[in-house]
Every structure is written in C-alpha cells, then in structure tokens.
Computed example of a mutant assay.
Amino acid sequence: MAIKPGRCLLKQRLREIRKDQQWLSEVTGITKSQISEYANNRRLMSLTTAMNIAAAIGCHMDDLYERIEFSSTE
C-alpha cells in the first residue's frame, strides 16, 4: 500500500484557527497567490513549504492534505 496527497485541507485548517490566507502569507513570507494555489488544489506544496505552513498554523504536515491510499502496482 502506498500513499499520495489528495485534496488540500489548508482552508479548513485556517478556518479552525480563525485566520486567513493573508495572515498566513504575512507570517510565512509565502505570497498570497501561492497560498491560494495550494488552498484551491492548483499546486502541491513542497516539503519545505508544508513544514513552514504546518509550523505557522500549529498542525502536523499530514494535516494539510487528505491521504489517498493506493496499491503500489497502480
């Protein structure tokens, strides 16, 4: 069994802490347009970006995406 990222959960995580994308941009230095692309599933975060965003919002990197399990033969 292997795992790949599914839908980005960034919008939900921000809602939970009552913050918005503008705040996240200011805290992390990541442009608001990039954050929007992640949140709207138009772009996948790099490992470094996911680490920085998770640290900023106080969650684990695994909490930023749904997990999709699939057979490694797929």
Rank of each mutant, 00 (worst) to 15 (best):
M45C: 07
E16K: 03
Y38E: 06
I35F: 03
Q22M: 15
Q22L: 15
L44R: 13
A39E: 01
S36P: 06
M51H: 12
L10R: 05
R13H: 02
T31W: 04
L14W: 07
N41C: 11
M45W: 08
E37F: 15
R43F: 10
R15T: 13
G29F: 06
S25G: 08
R43P: 11
Q34K: 10
E37S: 13
M51N: 12
K19F: 01
W23G: 01
R18V: 08
N41M: 09
R18W: 04
V27A: 12
L9Y: 07
I30M: 10
I35Y: 02
S25F: 05
Q22P: 06
V27Q: 14
K19A: 01
K19P: 00
L24P: 05
Q21A: 04
I30D: 07
G29M: 02
N40T: 13
I17E: 05
G29C: 06
C8D: 09
L10P: 03
S25L: 03
R18L: 11
V27N: 10
C8M: 10
T31L: 07
I35S: 02
S36V: 13
I35D: 00
L47T: 11
L24H: 03
T31F: 04
L47V: 10
S46Y: 09
E16M: 03
G29L: 04
L14G: 02
T48I: 15
Q34R: 10
L24E: 09
D20R: 05
T48H: 14
N41A: 06
I30R: 09
I35T: 00
S46N: 08
R42G: 02
R15N: 15
N40G: 06
Y38A: 06
I35E: 04
S25V: 04
K11C: 14
V27W: 07
I17Q: 07
S33K: 15
S36L: 15
I30P: 01
A39K: 00
A39R: 01
C8H: 08
K11W: 11
T31M: 04
T49N: 14
K11G: 14
T31H: 05
S33G: 09
T28A: 09
S36G: 13
S36F: 14
R43S: 11
N41K: 06
K32E: 05
L14V: 01
A50D: 02
S36M: 14
S36T: 15
T31G: 06
Q34S: 11
T48F: 13
